[in-house]
Simulated assay, not measured.
Amino acid sequence: MQSTHDPYQDVRDAIRSLVAQLPGDYFRRVDEQNGYPEEFVHALTQAGWLAALVPQEYGGSGLGLAEASVIMEEINRCGGNAGACHGQMYNMNTLLRHGSKAQKERYMPGIATGELRLQSMAVTEPTTGTDTTRLKTTAVKKGDRYVVNGQKVWISRVQHSELMILLARTTPVDQVARRSDGMSIFLVDVKAATGKGMTVRPISNMVNHETNELFFDNLEIPAENLIGEEGKGFKYLLDGLNAERTLVAAECIGDAHWFIEKIVKYASERVVFDRPIGKNQGVQFPIARAWINLQAADLMRFKATSLFDAGQPCGAEANMAKLLAADVSWEAANACIQFHGGFGFATEYDVERKFRETRLYQVAPISTNMILSYVAEHVLGLPRSF
């Protein structure tokens, strides 16, 4: 189930070889311990894979989003979970695209080597959710500092990051022409901030995904850590989301491959009533439909990466790729766990773990309903629904 004319086969082979060096039950053990795959992330970092999108002038590989997406895909296809480290791949885009020359020279080389992990982006708040323009966290400039107060939620990988991107309102909403104006992006030194104005509270969840609630109480951030111009943070944020959504789409595509390969093998070998269960059309058809939908999601993923790498607008394609891929990974997950029967719920088969992991992408980093709203308004020209 792999094309013989794949231009990314070398990347795929390298990631598969790297994952194969870990014990067979590695990811299962990490999940059972509610741990973090330090050994795996370190291996990816040392091999330079997480610096794929960093330009060569800063020590990265300077690859395109297409290659980066294949890296994420293969991690999940091999049974891993790229969600533990994918932020390092795309969060730096905000700094790279909108940071000053001095900021990039100071931070990008360390991000490329992994010495500085920029895995975390603090945007979502408990009372606003995806209605980002109504966020309540404020950053007030006082001399050469910004003083931050507020709260964030579902902020991932803070405990495994040296740096964090923070979105806060610098101009009150009643003083701007549009709600999307007056927000700014800051680079936060996580270690310096923790316990000195920022409190990190872990959130236990069903996916073993390191995520947290953050509380800001007069956190001081040097003014030099402002990225770009004050008040244009929301625009900068949107600029980097196309890469995020496309890479997450690739992870879902990897998950879908894993589920389909797993259930095809099992259904071919599992004999009930003197015949392999894969001989039954009731089993065949859901798997075949998932495979067909996977091909469509894959095409949209590469359409999005092609536009992104060419510097062309790709918001619609990135969003559609994410929706198609998240839907097919969930479709394949359901077929896989259903046809494994009771064994699908046994941890040793890894199906239930991957089932939990891929369910997240119906909700994050953008829900499927938000994508439908985007397409309805921005592609089809329907009236704005909210």
Rank of each mutant, 00 (worst) to 15 (best):
M1C: 11
Q2I: 14
D10R: 02
V11S: 06
R12Q: 02
D13E: 14
I15T: 01
S17G: 12
L18H: 05
L18K: 07
V19E: 01
Q21A: 05
V30G: 01
D31Q: 11
E32R: 14
G35Q: 14
F40D: 00
Q46L: 14
W49I: 00
V54F: 04
G62K: 12
L63E: 13
V70Y: 03
E74D: 12
R77S: 10
R77N: 10
A82S: 15
G83T: 05
C85D: 05
H86Q: 10
G87V: 02
T94H: 11
L95T: 06
L96G: 06
S100T: 15
A102L: 14
A102T: 13
R106Q: 14
R106I: 06
M108I: 07
A112N: 03
T113C: 10
E115Y: 05
A122T: 09
V123W: 03
T128H: 15
T128D: 12
G129D: 10
D131N: 15
T132V: 15
K141W: 09
G143L: 09
D144I: 10
V147Y: 05
K152F: 08
K152L: 04
S156V: 10
V158N: 01
Q159R: 13
T170G: 10
V173A: 09
Q175H: 09
D181I: 06
A192S: 06
A192W: 00
A193N: 00
A193Y: 00
T194C: 00
G195W: 00
H209L: 09
E210V: 11
E210K: 10
T211F: 03
E220H: 01
E220F: 00
E220Q: 02
E220R: 02
E224W: 07
G231V: 09
G240Q: 05
G240L: 01
L241T: 12
R245Y: 15
T246H: 05
L247S: 06
V248M: 08
V248Q: 05
A249D: 06
A249K: 04
C252P: 03
I253A: 09
D255R: 07
W258E: 02
F259E: 03
K265W: 13
K265S: 13
R270L: 07
V272H: 12
D274W: 11
D274E: 10
I277C: 04
G278T: 03
Q281L: 08
F285G: 04
A290T: 03
W291M: 13
N293G: 06
A297R: 03
R301A: 12
K303E: 13
A310F: 12
Q312R: 14
P313Q: 11
P313S: 07
C314E: 01
A316M: 08
M320G: 03
S329C: 10
N334P: 03
Q338M: 12
F343P: 05
F343I: 09
F345Q: 08
A346V: 12
Y349C: 03
K354D: 03
L360W: 04
Y361L: 04
N369Q: 12
E377A: 10
L382P: 05
